[in-house]
Amino acid sequence: MTETGAALVLRGVRHVWPNGIEALADLDLVLADGSFTALVGPSGCGKSTTLRIAAGLLAPSAGEVRRAPDGPGAVAVVFQDPVLLPWTHVLGNIALPLRLLGLPRAERERRALDALRLVGLDSALHLHPDELSGGMRMRVSVARALATEPRLLLMDEPFAALDEITRFALDTELLRLWVQRRFTVLFVTHSVYEAVFLAERVLVMSPRPGRIVREIPVDEPHPRARAFRASVRFAALCGEVLEALEAAGGDP
């Protein structure tokens, strides 16, 4: 894949923890602007480390990281936990990134409300996180990530803690938002099915030290219908990803 016009480039990234454990070995990853990529791999293979390096939250031991555009607000992360501030309401949580970026109050509120509408939570804006269900909390977390209109959205197993029905609903909603806005997505998951349903291509990582060992394109047009989950092609693609995982030597 070409690096010009890429939203994220990781070149020869290596990471060794202070205790000597090598988390990543020579990892290359290029995300085309506006693409949706899923990253699957056995647990402990360095998926989250890759994501933290991509976000700029962790400096790799070696290698090159480029983001375009870069800077606060251009990159957003959705963690596995919603990571909301319990003492402030939904609107305050969504406006937090805008506040940290120093936007004026009126602008903050306008953009936070827009983001809230995007995830269909405009009726909950004055509720606190402890008054929301797990699915609603995750929606708030997604809305907060989108509030700065980032070009790159990094998601670290964001829906893994939710029940399946809620997860399916949020998957569909994420795709709707992505078709609408076309930000670049890197979606880390341990669910092969979720990866195939969401992404344009699925990258498979090897066990530690992690590298990308397979790339499987999913050329099903977006927006994807629910029927795709039940199709033969979906099953075949999932089988292919599972096979790649096994060949890489690890359980998903």
């Binding site: 700029g56 963690f79 990571v83 501030l85 990134p97 940290l100 700065t148």
Partner: peptide
Amino acid sequence: IDPEQRDLFRLYGASRWQELLWLRLPAAL
């Protein structure tokens, strides 16, 4: 403080004062 909450603040380039006032103090209450 929760390391992920701290990551969130760092991601948006929060200053030490922003982190103190909007994260550390309320979390320490």
